[in-house]
């Protein structure tokens, strides 16, 4: 019972062989230089990129297998993703950003906003709920992106350089916050970072990409 990815990932000309398994409750950190394909692995798991060959499955459900042409679209994988460039929706308030995924699952606006508000409180942003992403700081945006992914209670949580777009001062605060959020989390977590220091405190396993 786990997330299993074995095969070739890549976009365009780029490709690399990957073999990872992440158990429930495990936090796998992938570290390596820029351009080594770390982010591509996350995108492949999220369903934004496709495998070139091999197989990706979660809890024995096949998500992507080129040879059988099976491909589960991103919206049916229910991964929680924190993108490297965050990709908050610029026209929506912070709370609406967090509630967006919940509403997609069929929750009413009221319910979704209630749960989004709880999540924003967890990351300490409850007072800024009605601001737009353009009106808050980089560290705050980063926390919104985390809340947006976590609020879905996703079986798979994907974090792409969660500290990259944060200035040094708020970096430590975020580093302290993240373990508390992920603690007791039952899903599989894949964390990508180019900085080994980031992952030390969090990861249960570390995989180095050359």
């Amino acid at each position: 019972m786990s997330l299993v990815l074995q095969g070739q990932v890549g976009r365009g000309e780029f490709s690399r062989e990957v073999d990872v398994t992440v158990q429930h409750g495990e936090i796998l950190a992938i570290v390596g230089a820029n351009g080594s394909g770390k982010s591509t692995v996350l995108q492949t798991i999220a369903g934004i990129a496709a495998l070139k060959s091999g197989r990706l499955s979660f809890d024995n459900v096949v998500w992507d297998e080129p040879i059988t042409k099976i491909f589960t679209p991103a919206q049916d994988r229910h991964c929680g993703v924190v993108f490297q460039d965050l990709r908050l929706f610029p026209h929506l308030s912070l709370i609406a950003n967090v509630a967006y995924g919940l509403r997609a699952t069929g929750l009413s606006k009221q319910e979704a906003h209630a749960r989004a508000a709880e999540e924003l409180t967890l990351v300490g942003l409850d007072e800024l709920a009605d601001r737009k992403p353009g009106q808050v700081s980089g560290g705050e945006r980063q926390r919104v992106a985390l809340a947006r992914a976590l609020v879905l209670r996703p079986p798979v949580l994907l974090l792409d350089e969660p500290f990259a777009s944060v200035d040094v001062s708020s970096r430590q605060g975020l580093r302290d916050l993240l373990p508390s959020l992920v603690q007791g989390y039952q899903g599989s977590v894949v964390l990508v970072s180019h900085d080994p220091e980031d992952v030390q405190a969090l990861a249960t396993n570390i995989l180095a990409f050359g």
Binding site: D76, F89, R103, A104
Partner: peptide
């Protein structure tokens, strides 16, 4: 396209 991908990744349909 990144924005669309983000929306899909959060489980949203194409419609929404």
């Amino acid at each position: 396209d990144d924005l669309r991908a983000a929306s899909y990744a959060m489980g949203a349909s194409q419609f929404s």
